[in-house]
């Protein structure tokens, strides 16, 4: 315990916790719409395709964010455009584009000479390496996402529920879809440094899916998703500090444990309701 308190006094640990909280909030907020709009595989594909951006950045010797952010943004928009332009199911298009992007990424990495530690770090992430600029970037994205989604919340819910009714009521469905994908792609990009390509999707999917299990109202769902996002980040960091586990996977493990707990709770609750109804 003393070690943990000592650890919390280090600036890198404080930055990591602040980063975890910001990412938890960002993932919890965007995740509500990612899960309901069935975009889980979309964010997964954007995360994995980011390998191309990272490899390009390393090859061109550019700072990570200067290549990663524009790449994921363009990739996200292009994929959404392709989904809209073909008659194929979106998961088909995503699989095709993801495979192509991964192939390009792997080939590009083979051109990287010498030490590839940076690249591996980005694949698996390291929240302890989050710096001040990353925190500011994440905070700005969280602010932008909050303003956009919360000020147009009714329209977001309506277009998520039924696009035809939303269109008839004057909601610019396409504009909102593309704006959301921009936010989602940027969120994936800023999360990669902390949790890595392989686990980035967990922040966007698990807290919101957990909240969805026990929510009957949207307001409760939204709040619960935000709370679970933050709670799992803080708990995961503490678990990582106490047991000396890797930070990103520790957070995801906490998210996963919470999901299983809530799943069990919701099943039990449903069973009790059925018994009461029979009586």
């Amino acid at each position: 315990m003393e070690n943990l308190i000592e650890l919390l006094q280090f600036p890198f640990m404080q930055r990591a916790i602040a980063g975890g909280i910001l990412l938890g909030l960002l993932g919890g907020l965007l995740g509500c719409f990612v899960t309901l709009r069935q975009l889980s595989f979309f964010s997964h594909a954007v995360g994995h395709a980011a390998l191309v951006g990272i490899a390009l950045g390393v090859l061109l010797q550019l700072p990570l964010n200067s290549m990663l952010l524009p790449f994921t943004l363009v990739f996200g928009l292009v994929v959404l455009y392709l989904i809209d332009q073909t008659d194929l199911w979106s998961d088909n298009v995503l699989s095709i584009v993801l495979s192509g992007a991964l192939a390009i990424g792997v080939i590009l990495t083979s051109f990287i000479q010498g030490y590839r530690g940076n690249l591996m770090g980005v694949l698996f992430g390291d929240i302890l390496a989050v710096n001040g600029a990353d925190l500011i970037l994440t905070a700005l994205l969280l602010l932008g996402s909050s303003i956009f989604l919360l000020l147009t919340l009714d329209q977001q819910i309506l277009l998520t529920l039924n696009q035809a009714i939303a269109k008839v009521q004057g909601v610019s469905v396409q504009l909102h879809r593309y704006l959301f994908v921009i936010l989602l792609s940027l969120a994936v990009a800023v999360s990669i440094k902390a949790v890595g390509i392989l686990l980035v999707n967990a922040f966007l999917v698990i807290p919101a899916s957990t909240a969805k299990l026990i929510s009957q109202r949207f307001t409760k769902f939204l709040w619960l998703s935000l709370i679970l996002g933050v709670l799992s980040s803080i708990t995961g960091m503490l678990v990582s500090g106490i047991f000396d586990f890797a930070s990103g996977p520790s957070i995801v493990l906490v998210q996963f444990t919470l999901f299983l707990t809530f799943l069990g709770f919701s099943k039990l609750n449903r069973k009790n309701s059925e018994i009461l109804n029979k009586q």
């Binding site: 309901l36 529920l161 039924n162 909240a211 969805k212 929510s215 109202r217 949207f218 307001t219």
Partner: peptide, 16 residues
């Protein structure tokens, strides 16, 4: 719609 969509009746009515 997704039968698990977390939206109550009053919330849906309010969206109109």
């Amino acid at each position: 719609f997704d039968r698990g969509f977390p939206l109550s009746v009053s919330e849906l009515v309010g969206l109109g």
